[in-house]
Structure formats: structure tokens, C-alpha cells
Amino acid sequence: MRRFLVHLTTALGLIAFTNVALSDGTATLRQGEPISVEAEAPKMTKVENNDVKRVRNYPEQPPTIPHKTRSYEISLNANKCMSCHARTRTGESQAPMVSITHYMDRDNQVLATISPRRYFCNQCHVTQVEAAPLVENEFVDVEELLKGE
């Protein structure tokens, strides 16, 4: 009987919680479309390829990629990004060198080649598209914060 009561209260609690969450206007990919209706897919947007830097939101932010990266292979065999962004390649490619942090292991020891933890570039760096954000972004730049004081 005690077991049953515990289960019952948990279940009721969960139902109440999901109800609140949904009525709270939590965004879903269906955007309120009934399950029996095929929702219209959003338009596909093109990847930005204008070679213009975007401002970083905070100093530690990995900069976004200002060019397309379609078919750029990053695998055990090859790293296409490093064929332009490696120190020795920047003369020809005129690309910014990956910063010194990319050559450091976790003990801040500087290595001769890209550190394994920085090998898969698109773990941190991403291309951009011109699209309306799905959820509102409440991030405030530290400069704005200081002005507001």
C-alpha cells in the first residue's frame, strides 16, 4: 500500500509538471501542429560564406566559421581545416593560424602538432546561417552589463 501511494504521487506529480511545462509555451518542433497533420518543414537556409568575421560574444568563445565547410573532411586520414589553418600553411592560405591553445595538451604543454583534444574542429567551431532563432536568446554582453550598472 505504501509502495502504491508513492507511485501514485510520483505519477500525479509528473502529469502536473508536464502540464505546466506545455502550457508554459515550451517550444516544440511541431509548433502546436496536431500530430495527425504533416507540419510544413521550415525553409533550408544557406551557409554563410562571406569571409567576414563575426564578433565573439566573450573572449573565450570559439570564433564562428565565416566560410562554407561542405565536404571538408576531418577524419583519421586527413584534416582539411589544418591544410589551411596550420602554422606552416598560413602563408599560402592567408588564413588565421589556430591559436596557441590548439597546440597545448591539458597540462598546458605545447606540442609540435595540433593537440588531439582540438583535432575535431567542428566540435567547437560552427558555420552560420541567416535564420530566426527558434528560442529567444537572453544573453547579455559583458559590455552591456557594465553600462547598465
Binding site: 586520414n77 586527413a78 596550420a86 606552416t88
Partner: peptide, 17 residues
């Protein structure tokens, strides 16, 4: 290079790191 297929091991190929 690698415009149409996946690449082989590129160590030692000129221009690759």
C-alpha cells in the same frame, strides 16, 4: 584533392598537416 571521394592517409602529402 579529395573533391570527389574520401581521402587516403595524408601524412607526408605536400600541403597537408
Amino acid at each position: 584533392k579529395g573533391i570527389a571521394h574520401e581521402l587516403p592517409d595524408m601524412t607526408g602529402v605536400e600541403g597537408w598537416k
